[in-house]
Amino acid sequence: MMKQSHTGGRSAIQHDLAKRGAFSPLRIAIRLWGYDASSAQTWIEALPTLDGLLLWTIALAPSSPGADITLHMVKPSKVPGAPFCWNCVGANRSVARMGRAMSTAFTLFAGHADQLPPARSGLWITCGALPPRAALARLAHLIAAATMPTSSDAVTLRYRVLELIARDLDIA
């Protein structure tokens, strides 16, 4: 019986995979709701790729063709006295239409849990007090923690694991 080493853990596995180039990175397309694309592009250029595990792009089409993950990034647009957030409505409808067939989709909300709309499709993660760029960087590490290699030399996101570990990023 072989004893497994517990030193290095997940990051050692990711590093070994990246070194060998034996996998396809997770392609994450960020769909913007209320953010300027040129500002978001500067965030993407600074986001961690974690030794090539993650590849970030801006989603130019609603369906994000070629993406493994579509991350809907929502800036709250609720006007005082308004019954709802327009950006939340758009993102929620888009996630509901996508389903899980084309790619995995979830939403990053730039606010606190008490600001979320009551009816939501899929996983909504809140930034809390974190600025969007910092929230994306923290989320990158949580996505990496929820990935695993597959038998086809790729990596896949364990969606249910991400649901368990990523809800409020400013307390993660």
Rank of each mutant, 00 (worst) to 15 (best):
M1G: 12
K3L: 14
T7Q: 11
T7M: 07
G9Q: 12
A12T: 11
I13D: 02
I13G: 03
L17S: 03
L17M: 10
A18L: 06
K19I: 00
R20S: 13
A22I: 07
F23M: 13
S24K: 12
P25G: 04
L26E: 09
L26G: 13
A29I: 05
I30S: 04
L32A: 07
W33E: 14
Y35Q: 08
A37R: 12
S39V: 15
Q41V: 00
Q41I: 00
T42A: 14
E45Y: 02
L47M: 09
L47N: 03
P48V: 06
L53I: 07
L54H: 10
L55I: 00
A59M: 06
A59F: 09
A61G: 01
P62C: 10
S64K: 02
P65A: 07
G66F: 12
G66M: 08
G66R: 07
D68L: 03
I69L: 04
L71K: 04
L71F: 09
M73C: 15
V74I: 04
V74A: 03
K75W: 09
P76N: 05
K78I: 03
V79T: 14
V79Q: 15
V79Y: 01
G81P: 04
G81Y: 02
G81E: 12
A82F: 12
P83A: 06
C85K: 05
C85W: 12
N87T: 06
N87A: 07
N87I: 02
C88S: 15
V89H: 12
G90K: 09
R93N: 14
S94K: 06
V95M: 09
V95S: 03
A96E: 11
R97Q: 15
G99E: 10
G99N: 02
S103Q: 14
T104I: 15
F109D: 02
A110P: 00
A110D: 14
G111N: 10
A113C: 03
Q115T: 09
Q115A: 13
L116D: 08
L116F: 01
P117K: 09
P118W: 05
A119R: 14
A119V: 11
R120C: 08
S121W: 06
S121H: 12
S121E: 15
L123G: 11
W124P: 02
W124N: 04
C127P: 04
C127N: 10
G128T: 04
G128R: 08
P132L: 05
P132E: 09
A134K: 13
A135K: 02
A135Y: 02
L136I: 10
A137C: 07
A140R: 00
H141S: 08
L142F: 01
I143H: 05
I143R: 00
I143W: 03
A145L: 09
A145Q: 15
A146F: 01
T147C: 15
T147P: 07
T147D: 02
M148T: 14
P149H: 08
S151D: 15
S152F: 00
D153P: 00
A154W: 07
A154M: 10
A154S: 13
T156L: 11
L157Q: 03
R158S: 11
R158L: 12
Y159N: 05
R160H: 05
E163T: 11
L169T: 04
D170P: 08
I171N: 05
